[in-house]
Amino acid sequence: MEHQTIKRIAAFSDGGQGGNPAGVLIAETLPGEAEMQRIAAEVGYSETAFLAPHEDGWRVRYFAPEIEVPFCGHATIAAGAALAEQFGGGRYRLYLNNGDISVEGEIQQSLAAASLQSPPTRSEPVPEALLAEALALFGWHESDLDTRLPPAMAYGGASHLILPVRHRATLKAMQYDQAQGKALMEAHGITTFCLVHAESPTRFHARNPFAIGGVYEDPATGAAAAALGGYLRDRQWPHHGEVEIIQGEDMGARSLLRIQISDQPGGSIRVSGTARTIS
Rank of each mutant, 00 (worst) to 15 (best):
E2N: 13
H3W: 03
Q4I: 02
I6D: 04
K7N: 10
R8T: 12
A10Q: 00
F12Y: 06
S13D: 05
G16Q: 13
G16L: 12
G19D: 12
G19H: 11
A22Q: 10
G23Y: 01
G23E: 03
G23F: 11
V24N: 06
L25W: 13
P31T: 07
G32F: 10
E35H: 01
M36G: 03
R38K: 13
I39S: 08
A41P: 03
G44D: 11
G44H: 03
L51T: 06
D56L: 02
D56W: 00
G57S: 11
V60S: 06
F63K: 12
A64H: 03
A64N: 10
C72E: 02
T76Q: 05
I77P: 14
G80R: 08
A82G: 09
E85T: 01
G89W: 07
G90W: 14
R91E: 15
N97C: 12
S102I: 03
S102H: 14
G105H: 07
E106L: 07
I107R: 14
Q108G: 07
Q109I: 04
S110G: 02
L111C: 12
A113N: 08
L116M: 15
Q117M: 13
S118Q: 03
P120Q: 04
S123C: 06
S123A: 08
S123W: 00
S123Y: 06
P125W: 05
V126C: 13
E128S: 11
E128Q: 11
E133A: 05
L135E: 00
G139F: 11
S143W: 00
S143N: 10
D144F: 02
L145R: 08
T147E: 15
T147Q: 15
P150M: 03
S159A: 14
L161S: 06
R166K: 15
H167F: 10
R168M: 14
R168V: 13
A169C: 10
K172C: 11
K172F: 04
M174N: 05
D177L: 06
Q178V: 15
A183C: 07
L184W: 01
A187H: 05
A187K: 12
T191H: 04
F193G: 10
V196I: 15
H197C: 15
A198G: 11
E199N: 00
S200C: 03
P201Q: 08
T202N: 14
R203E: 14
P209F: 02
I212Y: 02
G213V: 01
G213F: 09
G214F: 05
Y216C: 08
T221L: 00
G222C: 07
A224L: 12
Y231G: 00
R233P: 09
W237Q: 07
H239L: 09
G241D: 05
E242V: 13
E244W: 01
I245S: 04
I246F: 13
I246C: 12
G248I: 11
G248H: 02
D250S: 08
G252S: 01
G252K: 04
A253D: 02
S262K: 05
D263E: 15
P265I: 02
S268N: 05
R270T: 14
R270P: 00
S272V: 05
G273E: 14
G273W: 04
T274K: 12
